[in-house]
Write a protein that binds this DNA or RNA. Structure first.
Lengths: 217, 217
DNA sequence: ATACAAGTGGAGCGAGCCCTCCGATTATGC
DNA sequence: GCATAATCGGAGGGCTCGCTCCACTTGTAT
């Protein structure tokens, strides 16, 4: 923690700071229910603020997204820590995946975010990297117990997040909770020694490029 | 097969019939690479035809979609027949899922289509129903051999298609083939007696409502 | 050949969204 | 209080897309 408070950078006029908070609150609501490509004007409207005000404070969509999700992103990275603290690595591993998928299910914007990379938001990608490294450690420990199959790779998490996002966007309204069943199946597949060999995973760099895909649709 | 040829219903003038075919060909290309919500005007442009001509022949997007995909939809329904013809039901079951996912991977529009219902296109939904009933039969036989777990339900196919669609849309460009690994994991989870109980599946009607979700975004 | 129905293309309107510009408003230090 | 710099809001231009209308062209039956 440095001196400068993250949510209100350098001395903003009182009303400006208030509007900034309103915008962030509105963005969280709008992104949560409509996803990351929701109309930016809707955010301004829900915040009770002019469009110009929004653009002055957040010149690009990515900056607004970064501001709206920094807390969830931190929570996401922290979740690995919780999992690592579990005395049973496999139990921690399962709990971690459940927690992350539940976060996706409760926020469409966040589900989008986890399967996307915003190179602009650097302190943001740092959180992602922190989560990633913790997860690699978690994998190692879980494999050591023999409960997690040996051919599991970190990219499988990204794949899982994408699959889960697909189920969630399709079922969020009419059949919420379906994603739990998908996760249940996958956890059983991740467990124990793999009976059959799996198709090769994508390389880390290929998967990273997939995360960079231009957003929208 | 009735007398009226399906692709050119009631006596169209020669040039009109030709344009109709061009439109369908263009629609297949455009939908395949851009998904079902591709701009309709792009189809007209690629067909080398005015927008009005497209609208006269296919007044609604759904009608164009139905015309463009009736062959793939038939192939999709036929694939169940192939699987049922396999002497080893479990082998047929696995092959079926692989074939369907491969169809999704090769055509973004088709991937959309399988996780969506177009109540407008009735002969279309009939194909879907045909596939569904064949699949139920396939499930029964595979369960009888003991290779497919007893708690597998038909809705799990829909769930799989949604998950696969999520992976495919995210990885189609940068890491194609990732979906194979997802399928590999899931097939192993579907096999054998389930070690752990699974979260309940959605009811068939809930899943159907999920398929009806308004398209776009 | 001709006449007429069938078919065609693109201009054009409206809607939704992004983003900028600028005159009006308001907080803040003195 | 007052000056002034910071902030505000919304009109407006630009773009994409869906869909319609209508004057013109073309196939075809006689």
């Amino acid at each position: 923690m440095y001196a400068g408070e993250v949510t209100t950078p350098p001395s903003l006029r009182a009303d400006a700071a208030r509007n900034r908070e309103r915008l962030i609150a509105a963005a969280r609501r709008v992104f949560a229910e409509q996803g990351l490509d929701a109309p930016i004007e809707e955010v301004a409207r829900q915040a009770g603020v002019g469009i110009a005000t929004l653009y002055r404070r957040f010149p690009t969509r990515d900056e607004l997204i970064a501001a709206a999700f920094d807390n969830k992103m931190a929570a996401y990275a922290d979740a690995v820590g919780v999992a690592l603290a579990d005395p049973d690595p496999w139990h921690g591993f399962c709990g971690y995946l459940e927690a992350v998928c539940a976060m996706q299910a409760s926020d469409r914007g966040f589900a989008d975010l986890l399967t996307l990379s915003l190179p602009t938001a650097k302190e943001f990608e740092a959180e992602r990297a922190r989560a990633y490294h913790g997860f690699v450690e978690l994998i190692d420990r879980a494999k050591a117990t023999g409960r997690l199959r040996a051919d599991f790779v970190p990219e499988d998490l990204v794949m899982l997040l994408m699959a889960c996002a697909g189920v969630i966007t399709a079922t969020a309204d009419a059949a919420p909770g379906t994603y739990r069943r998908l996760l249940g199946y996958l956890l059983q597949a991740f467990a124990g020694p793999g009976a059959e060999p799996l198709p090769d995973p994508p390389t880390p760099t290929a998967m990273y490029r997939a995360l960079l895909r231009l957003q929208g649709r």
